[in-house]
Design a protein around this nucleic acid. Structure first.
Lengths: 257, 257
DNA sequence: AGGTTTTCTCAGGGAAATCACAGGTTCGCG
DNA sequence: CGCGAACCTGTGATTTCCCTGAGAAAACCT
């Protein structure tokens, strides 16, 4: 399989001018992702976010279209809503699998339909997220799926490093200067977003859009609050790495000592 | 006969980018497995899981197809349901054996089925699991069959080690710091899954999908329960190795002393 | 059949995480 | 130097998630 898949994805990484690492196919062309959901607002939201990752996106609104698109688009990964109008999710999956047996799938499921037989979906190395999701979560899981389906050194790939701060996306471990730091789920996602965009100012609106679920209706100052939490854990008593740009947002960068 | 098999499989192991050990054929190509079952949901489930192991899979839905596939696909192992629509399991087996005399077979049987007849069949080094099975079990037994049919050092292959914790897949022996630990079947499979993915956060859904039978319809908190059991036996009074990542899952890693 | 082990459900307790709110602090700018 | 806007953070309510004891049911073993 290894050798076979090398020909298919064999994603390699390169570092973009912005300093973000990207997944690329062996020939240097962008990774392709097919998004399948009947709600257009969702496909648009996802398409935007995933394009921002530098990936090439095609979307479909039903099972028929999904199978058709899969056949000609030949994506490297698929995002598949389990609730489609024309066929049930599992039969779509079956047909997709017949077209592209090795492509990893990220399932979208309703939170309340949790017991709605998600059984077996993650068994083959696939993954799922529940609606409403945060974009960071979807992107992170997709990256994981694509990474694992290809021939990339996972260790270097799953590890984000900014200065003496490291974040491992697989073990969820965070260290600064060698010391382990415990973060909650939300803190972890916020830090991951910051670290995936080092030295770049991210507005509170951007952060809210990426790190919190798309249906979050709360106060905008949660971002401030969580930045505060992060500082307490990461910058406590050290050279600060998280900086405020008043009126603009926040950014993370290596401490200049 | 041994030497004959060496020529056929002579599996070697290599460590994949993920850090998991994989079985490979001598020429470096992936191991091939033929899956034979009339229920398509079963073949798909198995194909997904076995592909994830890095193996190359072909499936057939009846005896005819099985024999045909075996002839051209020349698998290194076969998963064979004993209840097929067109022929009875034994004659399928006979024909497969005529094509590929040395290929090990993993039988799938109904729980209540004739244990004695199967027992006779497995005398030749084959093995069987009863439906409904867990994927961990199928994968483990297949790995065992393939390993034993080839020329691989069994000892190094069947022993999982994480820190001072060891788990022998052949003898089912588990030790921590040299002390033997008795585990029930479910506890053993859970621990094996954790240990085959050390330092990696595994969600409760992933664990359910791999360790419990595919038809398990119960409460998702069995996972919590069995984690609790495992901790009592493995971490009791020592530096804990099983960790909870709230909102994400569980992971095992060597105790940092 | 009777005892033992294993698996699993259920429910309560408790800890952790999330978030709203509000008062305090800092910064930029006139 | 003083004001307002933007930001920071302590407190505590609420929710979510996890752990585990108790016991029923099933499997297993004589």
């Amino acid at each position: 399989m290894l050798s076979e898949r090398v020909g298919i994805v064999a994603a390699m990484t390169t570092t973009s001018p912005q300093g973000r690492t990207e997944l690329l196919r062996p020939d240097g062309s962008p990774v392709r992702v097919l998004v399948v959901d009947d709600e257009q607002s969702i496909t648009e939201l996802l398409s935007m976010a995933l394009r921002y990752e530098g990936w090439q996106i095609r979307s479909a609104g039903d099972g028929q279209g999904a199978v058709r698109s899969a056949r000609e688009f030949r994506p490297d990964a698929i995002v598949l809503d389990m609730m489609l109008p024309d066929m049930d999710g599992l039969s779509v999956l079956g047909r997709l699998r017949r077209e592209l047996p090795d492509v990893p799938v990220l399932f979208l499921t309703a939170k309340d339909a949790v017991e709605d037989r998600i059984a077996g979906l993650t068994a083959g190395g696939d993954d799922y997220v529940t609606k409403p999701f945060s974009l960071e979560e979807v992107v992170a899981r997709l990256r994981g799926l694509i990474r694992r389906s290809g021939a990339v050194d996972r260790r270097s790939e799953s590890l984000l490093v900014v200065g003496d701060l490291t974040l491992d996306e697989d073990s969820h471990e965070v260290t600064r200067g060698g010391d382990g730091i415990h973060l909650t789920a939300t803190e972890f996602e916020l830090l991951r977003f910051l670290m995936r965009n080092p030295r770049r100012v991210l507005s509170k609106a951007q952060i809210l859009d990426r790190v919190w679920s798309y249906d979050f209706g709360g106060q905008a100052n949660v971002v401030e609050l969580y930045i505060s939490y992060l500082r307490r854990k990461i910058d406590a008593g050290r050279e600060p790495m998280i900086h405020t740009r008043r009126g603009a947002g926040y950014l993370i960068k290596p401490a200049v000592v």
